[in-house]
Design a binder for these strands. Sequence first.
DNA 1: TTCCGCTGCCGGAACGTTCCGGCAATGGAG
DNA 2: CTCCATTGCCGGAACGTTCCGGCAGCGGAA
Lengths: 331, 331
Amino acid sequence: MQNNRPATLITVAEAAGVSKTTASDALRGSGRVSEETRAAVQRAADALGYVPNGSARHLRRASTGTIGLYVPEVLTRSDYYMSFVFGVVATASDNDYDITLITSGRARPPRVDGLVLGDPLTGDPVVEELMNAGLPTVTCERFPGRARPDGVVWSRHADVVGDLLDHLAASGAERPALLVAGDESDWAANVHRGYRDWCTRHGVAPAVRTVPFEAPAGDVHAAGRDLLRDEPGLDALVCAPAGSAAQLLPLLRDAGRRVGTDLLLASCVDAPDLLLTEPPVTAIDLRPRRAGAACAALLFELLDGTSPPGTERVHPIELIARASTAPISPR
Amino acid sequence: MQNNRPATLITVAEAAGVSKTTASDALRGSGRVSEETRAAVQRAADALGYVPNGSARHLRRASTGTIGLYVPEVLTRSDYYMSFVFGVVATASDNDYDITLITSGRARPPRVDGLVLGDPLTGDPVVEELMNAGLPTVTCERFPGRARPDGVVWSRHADVVGDLLDHLAASGAERPALLVAGDESDWAANVHRGYRDWCTRHGVAPAVRTVPFEAPAGDVHAAGRDLLRDEPGLDALVCAPAGSAAQLLPLLRDAGRRVGTDLLLASCVDAPDLLLTEPPVTAIDLRPRRAGAACAALLFELLDGTSPPGTERVHPIELIARASTAPISPR
DNA sequence: TTCCGCTGCCGGAACGTTCCGGCAATGGAG
DNA sequence: CTCCATTGCCGGAACGTTCCGGCAGCGGAA
């Protein structure tokens, strides 16, 4: 039997026999309240099913209750960013925050309390503009440009790419090549660096082909053909751009290479379809949903002062080995 | 040179030389305001860059400023639902609304002004519970169960499946088969119906295999092998479940069928990876993002009374022909 | 003339929260 | 004992909007 009007702070206060101020302090842990009173208020709130009214809270606090979320338009289709956005949205909604999706054609900065930028690209004018808006900002991956965000969530891409190459070597690969996007994204730059460092450490001559970020499937195919032609000893291929491993699979097969048998294939971005290919493709799980959640969480901590500006946080990622990198059988 | 504090209704009213009430009425078109006054207020608002404070508005109106969005947990990974959610989120944020993602393990109905349910399944207990919460509700596709939503956005799936089969027939197919999920989803039921109706009209014996909604890739493969074995004349395959066409492609190839040459393949759900396969796969573009936007828009119209309860709206979808259904060459 | 209704505008209250300042009671230091 | 700091609690104002009721002024009907 529950009342049709939802419980307010005043209802709770009356039920607990205290004033609204005390009730508010008790529930938020602010002000000075005795432990017994706090417990009593909490009990009353639970019993009444009290949920704070977000609108009233934001009104009083002069916050908009909204955070802006920008992901480069080009990438909207990718599975990674979809999941990333979901992570941000879910965390925001837990904190009573609204999300405004910021698209490229923005006139003036939207009315938001803070910004989350997913893997910002150096040249992107929208990113530059947003970073200079004077709002608390969190980026996923470091921003390679001049401006400094107030918070960063980043992953050890270079290290994990090293792990991946170790894994390939353990499976018998001696000439691993890399397909990667340009260095305007910090992620791509780190993947690239991780590869070169590994090559240096192991005395292997690097074989790298670059495709632009928004490359259509055709360009990826061309780069793949390029590698097959120019690198005769090629026995492993690491694909960085999202989707490129799946795109190359048919090409490699048509070229007579047996993936997972005499040619190892791995992707730097895991995606559901890499499980469905034949063979399933080894990939680095970037945990995009959690990354989004971490960015949002960090932004909220910056907003309420729990974390200081300049905070950086490492987001764990993981190598997932599948059949495409099983030990090479001699051919 | 813009003030650091954003313009409020009072600022605008002062600038226009009227009271806050009049300013409010003028901007919203309510109350009685002369045309000159309204124009003056509008000018002042534009000049100051006035944006209404959503929190204050929602507080006053006793709305939460939040709508609940439920998509079955099983489907969260699918590209269709990702885009659908994006459509809802974007439209909601245009209307100053927050989105609460409703997950399966809900204790009590969340504090929201209304609900959007994406393609609700009959047996889903969460759906039943939400539909009985007494909140304005919009579903994407009709709800096959008892409860009636206040608004429905639906598409002519059966018709377009008919178009697809016409297209296959025009390419030379004589024995098209269907792979489809169970009838607990209105969408799957309509696809199924569209197929059977077409078969009846054209005097073709239907060949249908059913896989459960949350079928793993293995089940889809099994159903595919089933069809290849039991339907000797099979020359076209229509795959309804999201992702199943891409999953079957390698299987069909291994079975010696040349897709797009002696076997036509089509998907009832378009997805980015269908463009990347070899050959690209013909599909029905369900325009999921727009569908989500339409659901949210309809919900807002229900909330503000612009549209009456019981409104239904047709969402256009489109057949996209690709190489996988090019005219069959005789083998 | 009086009366009435309509138009155009306005003041104040309310929504539910947070925060500032204040006040009584307590208790330890002097 | 007095004095003062601290603890625990509270009232009232404020955030920006919407809405209810009201009040002049005007014009037409009687």
